[in-house]
Each structure stands twice: as structure tokens, then as C-alpha cells.
Design a protein around this nucleic acid. Structure first.
Lengths: 344, 344
DNA sequence: CTGTTAGCGCGTTCAA
DNA sequence: TTGAACGCGCTAACAG
């Protein structure tokens, strides 16, 4: 029995990460004091704080996350949950703006913001598991389809904020007034003299898709115009190309087209131009989002500023409130506006 | 002393997550047995295993990650570390391919793969802290500039695999033969009859940038051609635009241009065409990467297939080996090939 | 202001 | 094949 309990009263083992205990020993104080210094330093005399900090530096001490998490029951991590595959997320600038918006609303705060997407074959439910696994303290959910995910998330104890009305009462969300945006876009087409109008919709299992379509039909109705066609899309560039081909083959004789996202509009334009259709001379096009795609394509896209960054920032702010104990914040709806460029 | 220790012998508290203890109680076994069942189930009789699994299901038990991590000292998470800001990461398809490649090499394995980027103002060192914080078990590092980061990472106990030669001995990496790729690109320009050649380089503090430039100069030398210009770029689209403007204003009279990445090439082409230069008639262009940009631009870009996905996959595979205890695996260098399209 | 103490939930010896 | 006991590193009462 010459061996005491492991590391009991010993110097820090070389190679092993130093612990609070090691720091305490070096500084000649108790673990609790070191803990106080490490977590803010209040309630500790300046001198001891300095002694402790010196020991921390000397040892290169880093708090053990697991141990801290075990007792505080918080991970210091929040997630942006996107029920789409990485392929889609990385190819649509909308998600970059959204992620960046949430990040910016947490800048200067301790929390780390991670991006979690669905794996190709997986059900969106895995994101719920991730949220309840204890690895994250809360989440912002973007691009949810249908209301299964919101319903599943409604029963979870971690705070969640949606981007776009989740359609389930009692949940926090930030959104853009998508209907209004589509009205603006459609009115622009009408103002520029177009009468044979059509729209390429976004995913119709998403509120954003529904509202943008609704805005289009409403603006048409208000102007006494009957839409020539309503072509289903899914917010991807490929679906835009497909929509354009269907427009061409149906020989719709359209002269104005509202496309529910810039990415789709890029696909539409590429395909139309490939077929010899001139934009805007033959068909005027208005997009939606004002993403970088709008500036990249020729002609530059007239579009609706979707404030993706700001909406996400609002969502992040609401999540912060929820995390700090606030009750359900009221939804925040931002107003879109029109960006005039060359395509309409 | 009527109160026993908290929750001792009690039913699981409503609202609190069920613990191993709760499951053990419900199944009528000890915690250790439940633990065995949850982690593989060997060394447990089939009947008790079934009883335990039933209890797990009934309670909806999820293992507490923090507690498990505290004792196993592993997090089950690996990271793709990118010392670039999210703006850059999300705007270059190269990173999507890289991330996806690493993910795919871990598919079917327990590990979760996360993407970690630098925040705008932060030094790349923060990524080292992240790696040593215990939150991840290992990492693949992509797009490192210079050798400060590799050197810092060399002293870390967690396994790390680089994409691109880190320039520090003793580190694992996967790479593309960038020099060879640049040679192929340049030879293509020469074969198509171009003699007044120039290159827009990538970041010259990255080995990929250096090697691509070296391949260009080598191919020129071998053909007895003196390069007209070597224009510095940084792999971004904006730097491509800038390079194009400098080409135009210097009136270099170039007829063949090797641009060290597709994204830059897109910027170069947009700017040249804007100035009335025809591609490939006036200036032939070869890009590098074969990213989706190469197919999106007009004319479609002749480029070098950089196999970003496969290189990343190799790096992921090497990381898996390292994590399972293997010694330093030999570097893997993939061979590029040329993709002929319309720009050269 | 500081130290002592008691767990957080789990994996893992060591005995039985 | 199973159970009892220990400790991973840390925070949060509670005493002093």
C-alpha cells in the first residue's frame, strides 16, 4: 500500500491535461477559488485572482468541457438546424446568409454557433435527437418543410426559434413578409407593361413558398390579370432550369415571370437564354432574396430584398432571450423591398 | 435524517431526462448491466439484454453525452477545420466538396463530422484551441496558409490530417499533384496554339498556390516559352476580377491564361467579357478544380479535375486510421486530369 | 472573501 | 454473467 490514490497530491502528470486541482495546488488555493476565477472572477480578491491566473497560464490550463457540462447542464453551443442536405445548403447563398446572421447575433457572447444539416438518407427527425441529446442548448431552425418538424420540436424542452412561421402555436419565429415581397415583385412586372404573367413557385410545403405564390396571385387579381401559368419549383437552381424548359415547351407566350428565388431565377435565365429568349426584352424576370446570384447573372436580376441576414439575426436574438429565461417572444416580421436592376 | 440522498430509490423525476440508474431500476438490474447493453451488448445474456432494451425504449433513455465523455475522454466528433471565414467557405464550392468528402469517409461510422471555420477577426490559433479543448477527437485541416498552423498543430496530441502538404515533417496529409495539374493546363494552352501565356496564381502562402504556379512556369520552360505575366491572386472570385482588370490595363496582349482556380476564372471571364474580350477566341482560359462553376459559366470552362472530394475522402480515411491507433500513414497524392470544355 | 463537501451520469475495474 | 464501488473534472451550496 505504498501507492496513494491516483494523482493524489501529485504534480500534474506530464502529457495529461492539467486540471482545476493542478491549478489550485500551484496557486496554493482551493479548487473552488480557481473555479470562481475562471468563471468571471467575481467574489475573489484581486491578488488571489492574479495568482490563480498566473498558475492557469503557466500550466496552460483549459477547462474540461465535459465535466463542466455535466454539472451545469449547458453546453455553450447553439445550432442552426437545416433539414436539407449539405449539397443544397452549400449551393444556395441563402443559407450562408442565414448562418452568418445567427452567428452575428451571438458575436461577443460566449456561445458557439454550429451548423447542422441532414444527411442525405436521414429523416429530419435526427435533428430533433441532436437537439435533445444535450449537446446543444438551443437552436434556430431554417427551411423546415411541412409541420412535422415544428410539431416534434414543440414538445422539446430546449428553446427553439424558427425562421418562417412554423404553423404551430406557441413557437417563436422570425420571418419576412413573403406575401408582400411577391406583391412588390409582381407589381413591378405589371408596371413595366407586362400582362402575360407567370410564376415559378418555391417548395409549396414551405410557408415561404406558399406565401410567395399567394402574393403573386393576389397582385394579379388586384390588377385584373389572370395568371398564364403557375409552375412548381423547389427553390433549387435545377428546378429553375426545369421550369424554364416547361415554359418553353408549353409555348405559354409569357412576357413577365416572377421566380420565387434568385437561385431558381438564375437557372431559369440560363435556360431561357440558351433557347434564344431575350431577358428582359422577351420575358422580364423578377427574382427573390437579393442573394449574390442576383448580381452575378447577366442581365443583373431585379429582385426582392429578402433580408435573410437580418431575419436570421432576429431569430438569433430571440433565441438568446429564450436562453436567458424569457418567455415566448412575439414573432418578428420584417418588410421586404424591391431592388431594381436589369432583368425587369 | 429522514431524507435519503437525492433521487435515491425514487422513480425518475418527471421532466428530468432518464438516467442509466432509472433504466436499471425499471429493468431490475444494475447500472453496469445497462451500460453493457447500451454499449454493444456483449457479455450480457440475451434475455436480460431484451429486458433492458425494453426499459430503454419505455423511458426514452438517451445516454448523457457529457458524462460519457468525461469518463471515456472521447467526444465522438471530428472536425473539418478551415482557417477561412464563413463568407469565403460558403462562396467557394471547393469547400463544399471537401467537407462532403470527409463526411462520406465517415459514413456508416458513429462519428459526427462538423465544420469549423474562423471568425472574421480571429487568429487561426482559435482552431487549435478548439482541437485541444476536448470537444473533438481529431480533425482534417483544409486550406492552411503558411506553416504556423501546421507547426502549432504538430504539437497537439489529437490526430490531425492535412489537405495539402503542411510542410512540417511527421504530419499526415492527402493532396493533389498540383504541379502536374498546372502542367496539364498549360500544355493545353500551348497545344491549342497559344504562345503569349500568363497565369493568375492562387494564394502564394499556400502550397497549392505555389505548386500551381510552379507547374505553369515549368510547362512554359519546357516549351521554350517565356511567360508574359504572373499575376497574383488569392483563390477568390474578387481576386480573379481584379487580376483581369490588371491584365486589361497593362495591355499584355495575352492569348492564353491559366487561372489557378475555377472560382477565380469565373471572375476573370466575367471581367474580360465585360471589356469585350472574347473567350476563347481572343484569350483562351484554363481553370483549376472542376467545381460546379466550371460548368455554370459561358463558355464552359476547360479545367483541371482537382478531385477535391476524393482528396478529402482520403484525408478522412487517414484520420479514421489515426483515431483507431495506427501510426503515421504515408501521404496520399492523387493525380489530376484535364477536362476539355469550351474556354480553351 | 475562501475552503469543504456533495454530487452531476457514466464506464470500468474487481469480486462474486 | 452480473453487481458494487470508484472516480473522471467540475460547479454550487454551505460554512467559516
Amino acid at each position: 500500500m505504498t501507492e496513494p490514490s491516483p494523482r493524489g497530491g501529485q504534480a500534474p502528470t506530464a502529457g495529461a491535461a492539467p486540471t482545476l486541482q493542478d491549478v489550485a495546488r500551484l496557486a496554493g488555493v482551493s479548487r473552488a477559488t480557481v473555479s470562481r476565477v475562471v468563471n468571471g472572477g467575481s467574489l475573489v480578491s484581486p491578488e488571489t485572482a492574479e495568482t490563480v491566473n498566473a498558475a492557469v497560464r503557466e500550466l496552460g490550463y483549459q477547462p474540461n468541457h465535459a465535466a463542466r457540462m455535466l454539472v451545469t447542464r449547458r453546453s455553450g453551443v447553439v445550432a442552426v438546424l437545416v433539414p436539407e442536405t449539405d449539397l443544397r445548403v452549400f449551393s444556395d447563398p441563402y443559407f450562408a446568409a442565414t448562418y452568418h446572421g445567427v452567428i452575428s447575433s451571438f458575436s461577443g457572447h460566449e456561445a458557439q454557433v454550429v451548423l447542422a444539416m441532414s444527411k442525405p438518407g436521414e429523416p429530419a427527425e435526427r435533428l430533433v435527437e441532436y437537439l435533445t441529446s444535450g449537446r446543444i442548448d438551443g437552436a434556430v431552425v431554417a427551411s423546415h418543410h411541412g409541420s412535422d418538424l415544428p410539431r416534434a420540436l414543440a414538445g422539446v424542452s430546449q428553446p427553439v426559434v424558427f425562421i418562417g412561421d412554423p404553423g404551430v402555436p406557441g413557437l417563436a419565429y422570425a420571418d419576412l413578409d413573403n406575401t408582400r415581397g411577391a406583391v412588390l415583385a409582381t407589381q413591378r412586372l405589371i408596371q413595366s407593361g407586362r400582362r402575360r404573367l407567370a410564376t415559378v413557385t418555391g417548395s409549396l410545403d414551405m410557408v415561404a413558398g406558399q406565401h410567395r405564390r399567394a402574393g403573386f396571385t393576389r397582385a394579379c387579381a388586384e390588377a385584373g390579370i389572370t395568371p398564364v401559368a403557375i409552375i412548381p419549383g423547389s427553390f433549387t437552381e435545377a428546378s429553375g432550369r426545369e421550369a424554364a424548359r416547361s415554359v418553353l415547351s408549353a409555348r405559354h407566350d409569357i412576357d413577365g415571370l416572377f421566380v420565387a428565388s434568385d437561385l431558381m431565377a438564375a437557372g431559369v435565365m440560363a435556360e431561357l437564354q440558351h433557347a434564344g429568349v431575350r431577358v428582359p426584352e422577351d420575358i422580364a424576370i423578377v427574382g427573390f432574396d437579393d442573394s449574390e446570384m442576383a448580381r452575378r447573372v447577366r442581365p443583373a436580376l431585379t429582385t426582392v430584398r429578402g433580408h435573410a441576414h437580418e431575419v436570421a439575426q432576429e431569430a438569433g436574438r430571440m433565441l438568446r432571450e429564450l436562453l436567458s429565461g424569457s418567455t415566448l417572444p412575439a414573432p418578428v416580421i420584417l418588410a421586404p423591398d424591391l431592388v431594381l436592376r436589369d432583368s425587369a
